[in-house]
Write a protein that binds this DNA or RNA. Structure first.
Lengths: 202, 202
DNA sequence: AGATAGATAGTAATAGATTACTATCTTTTG
DNA sequence: CAAAAGATAGTAATCTATTACTATCTATCT
């Protein structure tokens, strides 16, 4: 037909599939994403997906893996480069906000996976992702207290919960307004209040 | 057969239907709730539901109405009974926490409705509910600033977003731990940080 | 290099299950 | 008895997954 090749190697197709799902999740309810919609966005037929994944859950699994690597990777880098725990906290927040601004479907997928009944693998992956994220926050908050940057009587667990809720609130607000850009623009103001709450401000 | 009546009047069935949906939403992904599951929980056949509701969306619509009345009703009462804006803020928070503790499916349904594509009626009802809630918060926060109970430079919009995010974070944490009771037990610690953030604390 | 064999990637069609919704008949209730 | 409420048994649409077949790529062997 035309000059371009039509058959891609498996790993590239797998990566493209993950991208397609993340893209679709930004536009619609993640649990309503069908294999037909995924294939259509990739320019494939529905059945072709199952050459690369044994099941639909395996696709979601790959997505969760991708999210874990990307998000935690960026977060860890932000932590390493920061001068102090308080600075790291802010860097992590901004990194997180950047990530969900680039991929608005991700927090919705995570939330959606968490509310699945039973014990699916994608759900457990979502749980461990958020747990690992929480542990990093916990460490940061403890270090901040030790350095006197945060309130001495701060409850790190509560602070970690609120940190994640801060992002979640911004996501919700952006869905209300049907405007993804609000996540980024509203983030500094909301985080300023959080910072004052944990004690890292003038 | 037995002594109990089997046919209920329409309005009681409608109320029972709403309860069934709210109950199911606590156990599974709200968008995966089927009319079969609703009917089963009510001890009815699936087709019988459509004697009382013309469509499934009409059922969700009734649920959103129910949530709006109950939640905003309780919130307004809490505001009226509070002595000051800061006290009202705390009363609203605790009221909200009580509500989602009693009905853990509700915040998940709201979140789920918001991420539907298109312009369904249940979605618009969810949007207006949260907007009205936000307006009440806004009023409270402005009043708190005027009275000097809150920081003078507080951004009320950001504070309202964080308020809702605070609840959302607690809901997420409870889903992570698969333990609804954590919403209530973790709430005070998280809210304390929020309060310090907006300036209403020692 | 060029032919070719085998693996990989894709299509089209469809099976089997599940969904919201409906048409018809039966039971209950006032 | 008549009207409301429910049961039974459908229908059409939609979803995941599979099957039979075809196209494309890649490595080997003379």
């Amino acid at each position: 037909m035309n000059g371009r090749s039509r058959h891609l190697p498996a790993d590239e197709r797998r990566a493209a599939t993950v991208e397609a799902v993340v893209g679709l999740a930004a536009e619609q309810n993640p649990s309503d994403i069908t294999t037909t919609a995924i294939a259509q966005r990739m320019g494939l037929t529905q059945g072709a997906l199952f050459r690369h994944f044994p099941t639909k859950d395996a696709i979601l699994q790959a997505v969760m893996s991708w999210v874990t690597e990307r998000l935690l990777g960026r977060v860890d880098k932000a932590v390493e480069e920061a001068a102090s725990p308080a600075a790291a906290l802010e860097a992590v927040f901004m990194t997180h906000i950047d990530f969900v601004s680039d991929h608005p479907g991700v927090p919705r997928m995570l939330f959606g996976e968490l509310q699945r009944p039973g014990e699916t693998l994608p759900k457990r992956m979502a749980q461990t992702l958020i747990r690992h994220y929480g542990e990093r926050l916990h460490t940061l908050l403890d270090a901040g207290k030790a350095r006197g940057e945060l309130h001495a009587d701060l409850d790190p667990e509560a602070a970690a919960t609120l940190f994640i809720g801060t992002v979640q609130g911004l996501v919700m607000q952006s869905m209300l307004a049907d405007d993804v850009t609000r996540i980024r623009s509203d983030a500094p103001g909301v985080f300023a209040i959080y910072l004052r709450g944990v004690g890292a401000s003038s």
